[in-house]
Nucleic acid binder design. Structure first.
Lengths: 117, 117
DNA sequence: CTGAATCCAGATGGATACTG
DNA sequence: CAGTATCCATCTGGATTCAG
């Protein structure tokens, strides 16, 4: 791929776009949290705690808060006894599904690639 | 849990696949490094250092090494004076392009979404 | 040029205990 | 149940220097 200047500008733009994505998605658990909500469309705090092996309540809480700030998830307190909290993706958050799907497929292929078929 | 067991198993499998992907791609700079190589198909150490704003040689070196261990990039020492080192994607690494593309597109859309059309 | 080595502040994240 | 608070070890990553 030889680089004509036009292509060069395009590359830089693409890389900035990736940075934008990563700024929002960086964090040890962000992607997997989103995929958990995505799978079930609505998911409670405690359920995610068991969905995701190894995560602590502190990290789950923290990363959910960041995702909420970035307008990717909505937090809803349900008036149950005791209270439960439900998380779901915003419309904008739902557009992440293509990323989730791509990562899922690649993960499966990667697994086959490493551990044989 | 409202999930039928079959769906439930499928979700868990998908989430494990994502974890597999993230295990390999985690790291502050991995994705952007790969996208840099991907853009140019072959890229030298010093070029990447300028491609990627903010990265230090230490981090670039470290993450490249991890990518090499995971068989996603190939490192080639060129017999120039002084020596230069070229990095390119393995066949397996090239399959990451779908992820890169998806992240690029989402980043662009996200940018429009946040900063207006 | 391409790193490795060292130093070191600050971020990350687990464990545990606690609250409403 | 859904967090918050605290302690604390480990990791991260920048700056700088050095080496082949």
């Amino acid at each position: 791929m030889e680089c004509i200047p036009q292509q060069f500008e395009e590359n830089k733009r693409a890389m900035r776009a990736i940075q934008d994505s990563m700024d929002v998605l960086n964090g040890k658990w962000k992607i997997i949290i989103i995929s958990s909500i995505c799978c079930y469309s609505k998911r409670r705090f405690s359920d995610m705690l068991t969905d995701i092996p190894g995560i602590s309540n502190k990290m789950l809480s923290k990363e959910l808060k960041e995702l909420e700030i970035n307008q990717l998830v909505i937090r809803t307190v349900l008036d149950t006894q005791p209270i439960t909290v439900q998380y779901e993706l915003t419309e904008h958050g739902k557009t992440l599904k293509t990323i989730i799907d791509t990562l899922t497929e690649w993960g499966l292929a990667h697994h086959r690639n490493i551990f044989g078929k």
